[in-house]
Write a protein that binds this DNA or RNA. Structure first.
Length: 423
RNA sequence: GGAGAGGUGGCCGAGUGGUCGAAGGCACCAGAUUGCUAAUCUGGCGUACUGGGCAACCGGUACCGAGGGUUCGAAUCCCUCCCUCUCCGCCA
């Protein structure tokens, strides 16, 4: 959520920035108009209420004759106030609705561009492996090894579902455990196992609602939303709290399944395990002091890169332009691993600095000693997404006989297994 | 799911229709004092919106789990919901 005061004071700046994201700057005028009406009414209402309080107190001491006359008058005032309160509530709702639909503003250092074609490759690391044979896509490798079962996934759940089997399941579990150990033991993150179903307020807090309602699964009767990412519960951990400044920065990590409808992506990436309705992910979330969030973003990206580096898989860092930031990021970098089987750079991590955008929605604040509460900045990034990391591992580590060499760092997590072969 | 108890400021805890944004205590901050390491005294100490000074401030309004209702007026009475605790039932 944007700061309404910023919109009031610098509407032209905000419009310029909004336009850079591809959103409609006309929304700003609608917000301003609604805000002006709300303030006007609030002021009138405040004055009526002040009068009621004042005169009600006097009424208690009035003479009996006066009392009846005054009481009728006050009753009328009370009705006016009630009507005003109803109108105000409606205006506030309208106001909030408009504000919740506005995207975050890009930072000034974000390159201006209209869509993903104008993103910038910041750097590339590692060398692409040279194959003496034609590298196969992971779905072929997985099926032949019997470690991915697509048919039965479809049988049980439908398209975009699969089973990991035997060493396939174990390989994913090894990746998760290894990543979490890296996060918690070397990169300073505290591990969580959060709720996977959360209420509406929580999803509004992370800015996945109200705009992306149709991308999530929910239980309407119970007011539960299935988390589309651990970012939702982790970012909201300190919702409606005021933290002491010394506690910042806070680094959190969690492995969770993620649930997404993927309605918008129907027909895209249908082959293999790249995009499903359910997938596993190790997520990183930071709650930081506003003065440090830009450098914290760099460190976050680096934390994601380190996973690729240790797996010895080539990767690159891509900076999103203003038109490809998404709804809540003020600045964003993707980390992409190269997968030789599908001949594609796969987005395995997306690291965002959300600035105070989520903090305002979730009301996450901090206070310097003796100071006023201020909003924190929140960041999030995958560390990494499992299906795509698994794809990259399978495809980069495949051998000409269709077996998979287990990356060295994972072997301690695989009971020492060095090679996955057909069972 | 059933029965009972309860939800007040960072914490503990008063308050049952007006003088309560809310006693008192603890914690915390500032100052004073004592020279013996901690105690004493004084003062301050919620959040949001809003008006003015457009800064350290001053005023208005709202908030005592949430939402409705009664009333001239509600933390205080009524209704609904949520949550916590205890007991029972059920179940991974």
């Amino acid at each position: 959520m944007l700061d309404i005061k910023l919109i009031r004071e610098q509407p032209d700046y905000v419009k310029t920035k909004i336009a850079q994201t591809g959103a409609d700057p006309g929304d700003i005028d609608r917000v301003l108009e609604a805000d002006a009406r709300r303030r006007r009414l609030q002021h009138e209402l405040d004055e009526m209420r002040a009068r009621r309080t004042r005169e009600s107190k006097e009424l208690g001491k009035a003479t009996p004759e006066e009392r009846d006359r005054k009481r009728a008058e006050m009753r009328q005032l009370g009705e006016q106030i009630s009507a005003g309160e109803r109108d105000l509530a409606a205006l506030e709702e309208e106001n909030t609705r408009l504000l919740l639909m506005l995207p975050n503003l890009p930072r000034d250092w974000v390159p201006v561009g209209k869509d993903d074609s104008e993103n910038r490759i910041v750097r590339t690391e590692g060398v692409e492996r040279e194959f003496t044979f034609e590298p196969k896509p992971h779905w072929e490798l997985g099926e032949r090894l019997g470690i991915i079962d697509f048919e039965r996934g479809v049988k049980l759940s439908g398209t975009r579902f699969h089973f990991l089997v035997g060493m396939g399941a174990r390989l994913e579990r090894a990746l998760i455990a290894w990543m979490l150990d890296l996060k918690t033991q070397e990169q300073g993150y505290l591990e969580f196992a959060p709720p996977l179903m959360v209420n509406t307020a929580t999803v509004i807090g992370s800015a996945h609602l109200p705009k992306f309602e149709d991308t999530m699964y929910r239980d309407k009767e119970e007011d539960f939303w299935f988390v589309p990412t651990a970012e939702v519960p982790l970012t909201n951990l300190y919702a409606r709290e005021i933290l002491e400044a010394e506690r910042l920065p806070i680094y959190m990590t969690a492995y969770t399944p993620c649930f997404r409808r993927e309605k918008m992506s129907a027909g895209r990436d249908v082959r293999g395990i790249k995009r499903g309705h359910q997938f596993d992910k190790v997520e990183m979330v930071k709650v930081v002091h506003p003065a440090t969030s830009d450098e914290e973003l760099d460190k976050l990206v680096e934390n994601a890169c380190e996973v690729c580096r240790r797996l010895k898989i080539p990767f690159r860092v891509v900076q999103m332009c203003t038109g490809d930031l998404g709804f809540s990021a003020a600045g964003k970098y993707d980390v992409e691993m190269y997968a030789p089987g599908v001949r594609e750079w796969l987005e395995v991590s997306s690291c965002s600095n959300c600035w105070d955008f989520q903090a305002r929605r979730a009301q996450i604040r901090f206070r310097e000693k003796g100071g006023k509460p201020e909003f924190v900045h929140t960041l999030n990034g995958s560390g990494l997404g499992l299906p795509r990391t698994l794809i990259a591992v399978l495809e980069n580590y495949q051998n000409d006989d269709g077996s998979i060499t287990v990356p060295e760092v994972l072997r301690p997590y695989m009971g020492g297994v060095e090679r996955i072969t057909r069972a």
